[in-house]
Amino acid sequence: MRSTAFYRNEFIIHLEKKIEVKEPKNLYEPINYILGLGGKRLRPVLTLMTTDLFGGILQDALDAALAIEMFHNFSLVHDDIMDDAPLRRGKTTVHEKWDVNTGILSGDAMLINSYQFFESYDSEVFKKLTILFSKTAIEVCEGQQYDVDFELRDDVTIPEYLKMIEYKTAVLVAAAMKMGAIIAKASQNDTDYIYEFGKNLGIAFQLQDDYLDAFGDPETFGKQVGGDIMENKKTFLYLKSLEFAPKEQQESLKHLYSLQPEDPTTKIETVKSIFMESGAVEEAKKEISDYTQKAFDALVSIKMSEKNKSVLKEFGENLMKRTV
């Protein structure tokens, strides 16, 4: 079976062929820059892999994969503006390298480009892809708004948080896989179940990302470790700590999340120690494992060879072992 590296390479070749810097340069150079920063290319790889595993033609999925990656990077450019983030994949963010106005406008162009990549498909596939893509795009916006709202609330619950990451992150992973299945002309049943697989894997992926944000290696993670703590984001680790920690530690955590110190080092280390001592870290790992298993459970109902199902399972297992 083809490797993840193979799919990634096929996608990058297509990306480099399709993306060009044209006039006005200040609109297109930031697009080229963010797309050139690399990253895992998780979503386009999944689109190509899914088409392949369902017996479709890999090349037919390249434009849909590009639409997914373009949209994902558009959302990152705008998220970084909203978070005032200095780094993305270990490099300067678009709005820091250029300016906020450029980041907004280049992001807008990326969103429009995303839809243009579907124009290469016949009318039936085009309609299915764009309906799914529009539904997913608005859910990503809803997820981002939930995330923003949570910053102002002190009563965020775990179910609310899980819904937020489902919309903000997981639905795009799910859509990437469903698009691959649609292009391969898979049955409605199979496209629905591969969506469930991708959604649950996406939730596990985001929970893992939250964990790595606090406890990842700065050399490999690519983003600023402790960024969520600095921004007082109410992640799964934070919410579970409030649920599990003794009252004194709960009060300490709430107080720390009301501060914006000039040097956040002490705050980050103190919060991390509460996360560990409260048992929140172990709970997060368990939740990651549970959602990964839910993803694997969805594979049971898909009409696909066991060999191909094992490829998807191995991909999910490797994703949960990542350090980046």
Score class of each variant (00 low, 15 high):
Arg2Asp: 03
Glu10Ala: 12
Phe11Tyr: 10
Ile13Cys: 01
Leu15Trp: 05
Ile19Asn: 09
Lys22Thr: 15
Lys22Ala: 09
Lys25Leu: 13
Asn26Gly: 00
Ile31Glu: 05
Ile34Gly: 07
Ile34Cys: 01
Gly38Thr: 07
Gly39Thr: 08
Arg41Glu: 05
Pro44His: 05
Met49Glu: 07
Thr51Asp: 07
Gly55Tyr: 01
Gln59Val: 09
Asp63Met: 03
Ala64Asp: 07
Phe71Trp: 09
Asp80Lys: 01
Met82Pro: 01
Asp83Glu: 02
Asp83Pro: 05
Pro86Thr: 05
Pro86Cys: 01
Arg89Cys: 04
Lys91Trp: 12
Val100Arg: 14
Leu105Ser: 12
Phe118Met: 02
Phe118Cys: 03
Tyr121Thr: 04
Glu124Phe: 12
Lys127Ser: 15
Ile131Cys: 08
Ala137Thr: 14
Ala137Met: 13
Glu142Asn: 06
Tyr146Phe: 05
Asp149Phe: 03
Phe150Tyr: 07
Asp154Lys: 11
Asp155Thr: 07
Asp155Lys: 11
Pro159Ser: 11
Pro159Gln: 04
Pro159Cys: 10
Tyr161Thr: 03
Lys163Asp: 08
Lys168Cys: 03
Thr169Gly: 04
Leu172Glu: 09
Ala184His: 08
Ala186Met: 10
Thr191Ala: 15
Asp192Trp: 11
Asp192Ser: 12
Tyr195Thr: 09
Glu196Gln: 15
Lys199Met: 11
Asn200Asp: 09
Asn200Phe: 05
Leu207Met: 13
Asp213Gln: 02
Gly216Ile: 10
Pro218Tyr: 07
Pro218Gly: 08
Phe221Ser: 02
Val225Leu: 09
Val225Gln: 09
Glu231Asn: 13
Lys234Thr: 06
Tyr238Ala: 06
Glu243Ser: 12
Gln249Gly: 00
Gln250Val: 01
Glu251Val: 12
Ser252Gly: 00
Leu253Gly: 00
His255Ser: 14
Leu259Tyr: 10
Glu262Met: 01
Asp263Ser: 09
Asp263Gly: 00
Lys267Ser: 03
Lys267His: 03
Ser273Asn: 15
Glu277Lys: 11
Ser278Leu: 00
Gly279Ser: 00
Glu282Lys: 13
Lys286Leu: 01
Thr292Leu: 13
Gln293Tyr: 10
Phe296Gln: 06
Val300Gln: 14
Ser305Gly: 13
Glu306Leu: 14
Asn308Trp: 00
Ser310Ile: 03
Leu312Gly: 06
Glu314Asp: 11
Glu314Leu: 05
Phe315Asp: 03
Asn318Asp: 10
Leu319Tyr: 02
